[in-house]
Design a binder for these strands. Sequence first.
DNA 1: ACTTAATCGAGACGGTACGTCTAGTCTTTAC
DNA 2: GTAAAGACTAGACGTACCGTCTCGATTAAGT
Lengths: 224, 224, 224, 224
Amino acid sequence: MTMLLTNETVRFVSEANTLPNRTVSYRKCVTIIGMERRTGRPRSQESRDAILLAATQLVVEQGYAAASIEKIAQRAGVGKQTIYRGWPSKGDVLMEALARKADVYIPMPDEGSWAADLRKMLNDSYTLARAPQIGELLRALMVEAQLDPVFGERFREEFLQRRRAALATLVDRARDRGDLPPGLTADVVADVVYGVLWYRLLAVPGPFDDQLADSLVALLTTGK
Amino acid sequence: MTMLLTNETVRFVSEANTLPNRTVSYRKCVTIIGMERRTGRPRSQESRDAILLAATQLVVEQGYAAASIEKIAQRAGVGKQTIYRGWPSKGDVLMEALARKADVYIPMPDEGSWAADLRKMLNDSYTLARAPQIGELLRALMVEAQLDPVFGERFREEFLQRRRAALATLVDRARDRGDLPPGLTADVVADVVYGVLWYRLLAVPGPFDDQLADSLVALLTTGK
Amino acid sequence: MTMLLTNETVRFVSEANTLPNRTVSYRKCVTIIGMERRTGRPRSQESRDAILLAATQLVVEQGYAAASIEKIAQRAGVGKQTIYRGWPSKGDVLMEALARKADVYIPMPDEGSWAADLRKMLNDSYTLARAPQIGELLRALMVEAQLDPVFGERFREEFLQRRRAALATLVDRARDRGDLPPGLTADVVADVVYGVLWYRLLAVPGPFDDQLADSLVALLTTGK
Amino acid sequence: MTMLLTNETVRFVSEANTLPNRTVSYRKCVTIIGMERRTGRPRSQESRDAILLAATQLVVEQGYAAASIEKIAQRAGVGKQTIYRGWPSKGDVLMEALARKADVYIPMPDEGSWAADLRKMLNDSYTLARAPQIGELLRALMVEAQLDPVFGERFREEFLQRRRAALATLVDRARDRGDLPPGLTADVVADVVYGVLWYRLLAVPGPFDDQLADSLVALLTTGK
DNA sequence: ACTTAATCGAGACGGTACGTCTAGTCTTTAC
DNA sequence: GTAAAGACTAGACGTACCGTCTCGATTAAGT
C-alpha cells in the first residue's frame, strides 16, 4: 500500500488514536504508527524549540500584537518558511508553546469528595493561569481564536473542550458518590469555573485570589 | 464641460449600467445622478454615522480581522483622517457603534427580590449578547482590548466596570433587604455573571440558553 | 460618453502627442491636456528623485543583480509602495534614471555631410555609453528587457526605436543630398552602429576607442 | 602525490591542454590524464541529460525568468544538489545545453575568397541564431553573463572570444590572399558581424533576413 | 559477498526579495 | 475651515528561490 502522509492526515490519525494533542510532525507520527520514514532532510528539532521559545518571549515581553511571524522568525534565527512548514497558523505555534511551558497536564484530582476535588481543580487551574507567562499566552490564544476562525475551531476542540471534559469527569464522579448538589450539571460547573477564569484573565487586570476560589467552591458545593 | 475624473468615478460610470455594487462616495454619486451637491462643513455627523455603520457591518459580515480602518473608511466613503480625528482608536469606534446599536442602557431592575432582580438582569444581558450583531461587536471589543492596552484600559473602565457597578447596586439592595445569601459579595456575583457571559461569547460557539440562566439564578440565590 | 481612464491610457495619450517619453503620472497628464487637477496629496518629487538616485547608485556600485526594489526603497528612505505607485516595473525606474542621468537628448547633428553627421552621432553615442554610470544603466536596462517581456516592449519602443529613428533621419538627409553610399539603408546603418555599441557594452569588457569609430565611419561612407 | 581534484582544477587542466571546453567531471578528466578512478557511485548521465533538456525547455517555453534552478530540478526529476554538483552556475548549464543543441562547432569555411568565406560564416551564424530554441538560449546566456560576472567572464572567454578568433582566422587568410579591403581589421569585422547578430537577437524582435546579410557582406568587402 | 565511498532523489535549512495590504501621518484641493 | 482623497514611511503578510545541508537508498570498485 502506498500512502501520502501530510501533517493534516497525521493530525487526524493521532487524534483518532487519542494521542496527545500537540501538533505532531508526520515524521514522529509515522514512527509511532510504525510506517516507513519519509525521504529528505528531517525537520530540525532545534528550530522548533527556538521558534516556540521566541514566540513565548515575544508574547510575554511585548504583547501579542508585537508577536508577528516575522519577528518570531528573526528572534529564533530561523527562516519564515520553517514556521509555515511546521504549523498551520500562528495560533498553533502559541498553542504548542503553551503546551511546552505548562506541560498542560490536565489535573484529575481524586481527593475523596466533590468539594475537595473542585478545590484542587480550581487551585491548579488558577495557579497556572496566574503565572505571568502562562496568562499572557492564554490571552494571546483567545485573541487569535477570535481573529482566525479556523484556528478558533481547533483551539476550542483541542484545548477548551478537553478542560471542560476533565471537569465533567469530576462532576460525574461526584454524582456517583451522591456528593453533588442537586440541580448542578457538568456544563454549568464548567461555565462557572472557566468563565470566571477567562473573565479574570481578559477583563479584569487583577490576579485571582484565594478568596475568589473559596467563594466559588462554596457556591458550587451548596445544595439548594 | 469641465469634469473631475477620478479612477473611482470613471470606474463607477463604466459599471453604472452593469454592476453598481461598488462603494462610492456619496459626493460623487449625487453629482452623477444629478441631485444637489452638499456644500460646506455640515458633513460631520453624517460621516460619524457612516463610519459607525460601516464598522458594524464589517465586523458582523466579515469578522473583526477584516475590519481595518482602511476598509471602514472606504465603505463609509470617508477619509481615514476623519476616523482618526473622531476616535482615539479603532476600539473606541466599535465601542460607540455598540452604544448606538444597543443603546446600551444598563438595566437597573427593581423587581422586589434579589432572585427576581438577578433574573431580570441576566435576561436582559444575555438577550442582548445573544443578538448576533451585538455579540460580534462585543467579541471584537474584547479582542481589541487585548491588542491595544491603552484602549483596553478605557474599555474596562467605561464598559466592563459600569456593568459590574450596576450589578453591585442590585447586590447592595439585596443585602439591605436581607435577601442575599450569606457569603456572597458583589465581586463574586459579577465574576460569575459576566464571566459566564463572556466565556460563552468567546469560548463556546453555542448560544446562551434559559436553562443556563436558571442554573445561575439558583446558584446565586441559595444560602449555604 | 463614458470613458475608462487608466495610467496606461494616459501614457498612450501622452505618447500620441509626442510628449517626452518618461513614465507620466496621470496627474501630470491631465494638467498637460488641460483638465483639472486631482485631489489628494501630490506625489513627492523628492521621493522620486531619491528613488532614481538610489537605483542608479545600486546598479553602478553593486551591479544589476543587487538592485532589488527592496534595497532601492531602503537606500532612498522610501516605502516600497511609493516605487510601485510611480513606475510599472523596475525597468521603468531605470529607464527614467537613465533619462535623468544623460538627459537623453538624442543628438541630431547637421554637420553638412553624411560622414560628418555620422561621425558626430557616433562620438555622441559612444561617449555617452563610455561613461561608466551610463554604461551600467544601459546594461541593466537590456537585461531587464529580456527578463520582463512587458517592459522589454516598452524599452524597444520608447528607447531603442527612437534612436534608430534619429539615425534614420540623418540617413534620409544624406540620401537627399546624394551623399549616401549606394545600397546603404537606414536599417543597416542602425544595425551596424547600435549593434556594435551594444555588443561592446554587453559582450566585450573593453571600452570603445576612437579607432573603432573611425573604422565604422570609413565602412559606412564608402561606396561599393 | 596526493591531489585534491575539484571541478575547478579539472577545468583548468582541461583548458591548459586545450581540451574541448565542455564542463568536464573530474572522473572523465582523470581518465584522460591517466590517473586512477575514484570509487563511489558514478554520476548519472541520465540526470545530466534530463537537466539540460529541462533547462532548455523552460527557457524556450517560459522564458529565462522562469528557468529557476528549482524548476529545472523539478522538471528533470532531479535533486537540486545534482545540478550544483555538475555545474558551477546556471549559466554553465545553459552553455552546455546550447552546446548539445547546436553542437556548436565553429564553422571554418574556406570558400576561396574573403567575400565567400564571410558570406558562409554569416549564413551559418545567422541561421543558427534564427532557430528559435537556439535564439532563446543565446539571449538567456547573455542575460546570465550580465547578472553573474563570474560566469560572464567564462562566457566571454569560452564562447564569445572563440567565435571572434574563428572570424579572425578568416580575416588573416584573406589578408594573406590580398583579398581584404584596406583598413579592415579582424576586430572591426568581429564587432560588426557579431554586434549586428546580438543586437538583432536582444534588441529587435524581428528575425535576421538575407538582405541584412547581403548588406553586411557588401559593407565588409568594399575597399575604401 | 562485503566494505567503502560518492551519487542519487528528496526536502528542510537560514535567507532575501517579491508584490500586496494596512497603520497612522501628512498635504493638497474642493465645497 | 473641515472633509475627501490619496500619497507618505514603515513593516507584516504568505510565496518563491537561493545555495547548503541532511537523510535513506543506490551503485560501482576494491577487497
